[in-house]
Computed example of a mutant assay.
Amino acid sequence: MEQKLSLKRLFELYDEMLRVPHRAEIYRELQDEDDLFLLLVYSEMLGVPNPAFYYTLELYPYIIETFHEWHLRMGMDKSPLQGIRCC
């Protein structure tokens, strides 16, 4: 049993060694995916036609909390949407 645990721990350490140098890249990629998703969800409000608007409308209450960080990352000082006031 102890050999199994140590082998498992060895695999965890090996996995961590492979991940450490790429942590910043992974974080940036995940942030880019998040930004693209939020742009898709809010695109209809920004004036860009979105064929999936009806399906993404129900997501608004869940992602409204992250909207402020998103529009600041996109370089917008104030909220670009009239209906959403976060600043």
Rank of each mutant, 00 (worst) to 15 (best):
K8Y: 08
D15N: 04
R28M: 08
M74P: 02
D32S: 10
L36N: 06
E29G: 12
E65Q: 06
Y62F: 14
E12T: 03
L13E: 06
E44A: 13
V48A: 02
L72E: 15
S79F: 01
P80I: 03
H22I: 04
G83I: 03
S43K: 05
L38Q: 15
D35A: 15
Y55F: 06
L36H: 08
M76P: 00
Y60G: 01
D34M: 10
I63S: 01
R23P: 02
H68R: 14
G83E: 07
G75H: 06
M45N: 07
G83H: 04
E65M: 01
L59N: 03
G75I: 09
C86E: 11
C87A: 04
L57Q: 09
R19D: 10
A52F: 10
C86F: 04
G83Y: 02
F53M: 00
Y60N: 06
D15A: 10
A24G: 04
P61A: 11
D35K: 12
F11A: 14
L30E: 15
M45R: 13
R73I: 04
M76Y: 06
K4I: 10
L46K: 03
M17F: 03
V20Y: 00
G75T: 12
D32V: 06
Q3F: 14
H71Q: 13
L59I: 12
H68Q: 12
A24N: 03
N50A: 07
G75E: 05
E2F: 00
D77G: 05
H22E: 00
A52L: 08
D32E: 10
C87N: 14
S43Q: 09
G47V: 09
M76D: 06
R9Y: 11
Q31S: 13
S43T: 10
K4T: 13
Y62P: 02
Q82A: 15
S6F: 07
